[in-house]
Amino acid sequence: MDRLATGIPVLDRVLDGGLPPGSVVVLKADAASQSELFINTFCGVRETQYVTTVRSTTTVERGIERSDAVDTESVTVHAAHDEEAIERTAAVVSELDTESTLIVDSVEPLERTDAETYRRFIDDLMTRVIDAEAIAILHAVRSEHDPENRVLTEQMADLVFDLRSRVTGTDVEHRLIVPKFRGGVIPEKPLKLKLGESVTVDTSRDIA
Protein backbone atom coordinates (compact mmCIF):
# COMPACT_ATOMS: atom_id res chain seq x y z
CA MET A 1 0.00 0.00 0.00
CA ASP A 2 1.24 3.51 -0.81
CA ARG A 3 1.90 5.62 2.26
CA LEU A 4 1.51 9.36 2.88
CA ALA A 5 4.58 11.01 4.39
CA THR A 6 4.32 12.71 7.79
CA GLY A 7 7.13 15.17 7.05
CA ILE A 8 9.22 13.59 9.82
CA PRO A 9 11.66 11.16 8.14
CA VAL A 10 12.43 9.11 11.27
CA LEU A 11 8.73 8.61 11.90
CA ASP A 12 8.09 7.65 8.28
CA ARG A 13 10.82 5.01 8.50
CA VAL A 14 9.37 3.26 11.55
CA LEU A 15 5.91 3.40 9.98
CA ASP A 16 7.14 1.61 6.85
CA GLY A 17 7.01 4.71 4.68
CA GLY A 18 4.44 6.87 6.41
CA LEU A 19 0.73 6.82 7.16
CA PRO A 20 -1.76 4.64 5.28
CA PRO A 21 -4.22 6.82 3.31
CA GLY A 22 -7.51 7.06 5.17
CA SER A 23 -5.91 7.15 8.62
CA VAL A 24 -7.19 9.07 11.63
CA VAL A 25 -4.33 9.85 14.02
CA VAL A 26 -4.45 11.07 17.62
CA LEU A 27 -1.45 13.08 18.79
CA LYS A 28 -1.42 13.07 22.61
CA ALA A 29 0.81 15.59 24.36
CA ASP A 30 1.09 17.82 27.41
CA ALA A 31 0.03 21.44 27.01
CA ALA A 32 3.59 22.62 27.76
CA SER A 33 5.20 20.28 25.22
CA GLN A 34 6.53 21.00 21.73
CA SER A 35 3.58 19.29 20.06
CA GLU A 36 2.93 22.41 17.97
CA LEU A 37 6.19 21.63 16.16
CA PHE A 38 4.75 18.26 15.11
CA ILE A 39 1.51 19.88 13.98
CA ASN A 40 3.32 22.47 11.87
CA THR A 41 5.51 19.76 10.33
CA PHE A 42 2.45 17.77 9.30
CA CYS A 43 1.19 20.93 7.56
CA GLY A 44 4.28 21.09 5.36
CA VAL A 45 3.69 17.88 3.42
CA ARG A 46 0.52 18.45 1.39
CA GLU A 47 -2.61 20.58 1.16
CA THR A 48 -3.91 21.05 4.70
CA GLN A 49 -7.18 22.16 6.26
CA TYR A 50 -6.36 23.37 9.79
CA VAL A 51 -9.23 23.75 12.26
CA THR A 52 -8.33 25.68 15.41
CA THR A 53 -10.73 25.35 18.33
CA VAL A 54 -8.65 27.24 20.91
CA ARG A 55 -6.21 29.71 19.35
CA SER A 56 -7.15 32.46 16.92
CA THR A 57 -6.59 31.95 13.20
CA THR A 58 -4.07 34.80 13.27
CA THR A 59 -2.01 33.12 15.98
CA VAL A 60 -2.03 29.80 14.13
CA GLU A 61 -1.08 31.44 10.83
CA ARG A 62 1.81 33.31 12.44
CA GLY A 63 3.12 30.08 13.98
CA ILE A 64 2.97 28.32 10.63
CA GLU A 65 4.70 31.24 8.88
CA ARG A 66 7.65 30.92 11.29
CA SER A 67 8.18 27.31 10.22
CA ASP A 68 10.60 27.07 7.30
CA ALA A 69 9.24 23.62 6.39
CA VAL A 70 5.72 24.84 5.58
CA ASP A 71 4.43 26.34 2.35
CA THR A 72 1.84 28.66 3.86
CA GLU A 73 -0.14 28.77 0.61
CA SER A 74 -0.97 25.08 1.06
CA VAL A 75 -2.58 25.62 4.49
CA THR A 76 -6.06 27.00 5.10
CA VAL A 77 -6.90 27.85 8.71
CA HIS A 78 -10.49 27.72 9.99
CA ALA A 79 -11.86 28.86 13.37
CA ALA A 80 -14.29 26.71 15.35
CA HIS A 81 -14.51 28.42 18.73
CA ASP A 82 -18.12 28.65 19.83
CA GLU A 83 -20.93 26.29 20.74
CA GLU A 84 -21.16 25.36 17.06
CA ALA A 85 -17.52 24.18 16.96
CA ILE A 86 -18.37 20.60 16.09
CA GLU A 87 -20.71 21.71 13.26
CA ARG A 88 -18.06 24.10 11.90
CA THR A 89 -15.45 21.35 11.99
CA ALA A 90 -17.81 18.89 10.31
CA ALA A 91 -18.33 21.37 7.47
CA VAL A 92 -14.57 21.47 6.84
CA VAL A 93 -14.42 17.67 6.98
CA SER A 94 -17.15 17.35 4.35
CA GLU A 95 -15.05 19.36 1.85
CA LEU A 96 -11.78 17.51 2.45
CA ASP A 97 -9.82 17.01 -0.76
CA THR A 98 -8.17 13.81 -1.97
CA GLU A 99 -4.84 12.95 -0.32
CA SER A 100 -4.94 16.07 1.82
CA THR A 101 -4.40 16.56 5.55
CA LEU A 102 -6.94 17.65 8.16
CA ILE A 103 -5.71 18.96 11.50
CA VAL A 104 -8.00 19.57 14.47
CA ASP A 105 -6.17 21.58 17.14
CA SER A 106 -7.30 20.76 19.62
CA VAL A 107 -9.99 18.12 19.83
CA GLU A 108 -11.04 18.74 23.49
CA PRO A 109 -13.85 21.25 22.79
CA LEU A 110 -15.40 18.75 20.40
CA GLU A 111 -14.98 15.91 22.89
CA ARG A 112 -16.99 17.89 25.46
CA THR A 113 -20.18 17.58 23.41
CA ASP A 114 -22.63 14.81 24.26
CA ALA A 115 -21.46 11.27 23.52
CA GLU A 116 -23.86 10.53 20.66
CA THR A 117 -23.15 13.80 18.82
CA TYR A 118 -19.43 13.23 19.14
CA ARG A 119 -19.69 9.59 18.05
CA ARG A 120 -21.54 10.66 14.87
CA PHE A 121 -18.91 13.32 14.20
CA ILE A 122 -16.04 10.84 14.53
CA ASP A 123 -17.85 8.29 12.39
CA ASP A 124 -18.48 10.87 9.63
CA LEU A 125 -14.87 12.06 9.92
CA MET A 126 -13.51 8.55 9.45
CA THR A 127 -15.79 7.90 6.48
CA ARG A 128 -14.73 11.11 4.71
CA VAL A 129 -11.03 10.56 5.41
CA ILE A 130 -11.24 7.04 3.98
CA ASP A 131 -13.19 8.17 0.90
CA ALA A 132 -10.69 10.97 0.23
CA GLU A 133 -7.65 8.78 1.01
CA ALA A 134 -6.64 11.65 3.28
CA ILE A 135 -5.10 11.95 6.75
CA ALA A 136 -6.67 13.44 9.88
CA ILE A 137 -4.58 14.53 12.87
CA LEU A 138 -6.49 15.11 16.12
CA HIS A 139 -4.38 17.02 18.64
CA ALA A 140 -5.37 15.75 22.09
CA VAL A 141 -3.84 17.73 24.95
CA ARG A 142 -3.51 15.74 28.17
CA SER A 143 -4.93 17.17 31.37
CA GLU A 144 -5.87 16.03 34.86
CA HIS A 145 -9.47 15.84 33.72
CA ASP A 146 -9.63 14.55 30.14
CA PRO A 147 -13.09 14.71 28.55
CA GLU A 148 -15.10 11.51 28.88
CA ASN A 149 -15.14 11.19 25.10
CA ARG A 150 -11.32 10.96 24.99
CA VAL A 151 -11.72 7.19 25.31
CA LEU A 152 -13.87 7.17 22.16
CA THR A 153 -11.33 9.36 20.33
CA GLU A 154 -8.52 6.89 20.99
CA GLN A 155 -10.69 3.84 20.41
CA MET A 156 -11.83 5.03 16.98
CA ALA A 157 -8.41 6.29 15.85
CA ASP A 158 -6.23 4.19 13.56
CA LEU A 159 -2.99 5.40 15.14
CA VAL A 160 -2.06 7.02 18.44
CA PHE A 161 1.11 9.10 18.80
CA ASP A 162 2.01 9.76 22.44
CA LEU A 163 4.60 12.53 22.90
CA ARG A 164 6.24 12.56 26.33
CA SER A 165 8.84 14.91 27.75
CA ARG A 166 10.87 14.72 30.94
CA VAL A 167 13.75 16.60 32.56
CA THR A 168 16.87 14.56 33.26
CA GLY A 169 19.59 16.56 34.96
CA THR A 170 20.10 19.61 32.77
CA ASP A 171 18.47 18.09 29.68
CA VAL A 172 14.92 17.70 28.42
CA GLU A 173 14.21 14.35 26.76
CA HIS A 174 11.44 13.91 24.22
CA ARG A 175 10.13 10.49 23.29
CA LEU A 176 7.38 9.52 20.89
CA ILE A 177 5.52 6.30 21.62
CA VAL A 178 3.21 4.66 19.08
CA PRO A 179 0.98 2.42 21.24
CA LYS A 180 -1.61 1.85 18.51
CA PHE A 181 -1.30 1.27 14.77
CA ARG A 182 -4.35 -0.45 13.34
CA GLY A 183 -3.24 -2.71 10.50
CA GLY A 184 0.43 -1.89 11.01
CA VAL A 185 3.42 -2.88 13.11
CA ILE A 186 3.93 -0.96 16.37
CA PRO A 187 7.54 0.23 16.86
CA GLU A 188 9.21 -1.86 19.56
CA LYS A 189 10.84 1.12 21.24
CA PRO A 190 9.96 4.79 21.78
CA LEU A 191 11.57 7.23 19.36
CA LYS A 192 14.02 9.54 21.11
CA LEU A 193 13.73 12.90 19.41
CA LYS A 194 15.27 16.35 19.40
CA LEU A 195 12.73 19.14 19.12
CA GLY A 196 14.39 22.32 17.93
CA GLU A 197 13.54 24.15 14.74
CA SER A 198 12.54 20.75 13.36
CA VAL A 199 11.90 17.20 14.57
CA THR A 200 15.07 15.08 14.37
CA VAL A 201 16.53 11.95 15.94
CA ASP A 202 18.32 12.34 19.28
CA THR A 203 21.49 10.25 18.88
CA SER A 204 22.75 10.76 22.43
CA ARG A 205 23.05 7.60 24.49
CA ASP A 206 20.89 6.84 27.47
CA ILE A 207 22.94 6.60 30.67
CA ALA A 208 21.35 4.84 33.59
Rank of each mutant, 00 (worst) to 15 (best):
V26P: 05
I8A: 04
A90S: 14
R164D: 08
L176Q: 02
L125K: 03
D71L: 07
L191D: 02
V92Y: 00
V104M: 03
S165Y: 02
K194F: 08
S198V: 07
I64N: 08
A32T: 14
T59S: 14
F181D: 13
L4D: 10
G184L: 08
T6Y: 04
I64R: 06
A79N: 07
G17C: 11
I103L: 10
V75A: 07
V185K: 14
I137L: 15
V45L: 06
R150L: 12
L193I: 06
D206N: 05
E111V: 00
R182T: 11
E148D: 14
S23R: 08
S67I: 00
R175K: 05
S143V: 04
L110N: 05
T57K: 09
E108N: 15
E197N: 13
V10G: 00
G44E: 07
S165P: 01
T41G: 05
D124Q: 12
G63M: 14
A157C: 06
S106R: 02
S33P: 07
K192Q: 08
F121C: 05
R66W: 13
A69P: 00
V25F: 10
T72P: 10
A29L: 03
R142F: 03
I186S: 10
I130C: 03
P9E: 03
V51W: 02
M126V: 12
D97R: 15
D105W: 10
V51K: 01
A79L: 06
V107Y: 03
E133D: 15
E188G: 15
R205P: 00
A69R: 11
G63R: 11
D97K: 15
T89G: 00
I130G: 03
R175Y: 00
G18H: 07
G196Q: 12
S198N: 07
R150V: 10
V141W: 01
S74C: 02
D171R: 02
S35Q: 05
D114F: 13
V201L: 09
I8D: 12
G18R: 04
T48E: 12
A134M: 08
K192I: 04
I130D: 15
L176S: 03
E84S: 08
T153V: 13
A31N: 04
N40A: 14
A79P: 11
L176N: 00
I8H: 03
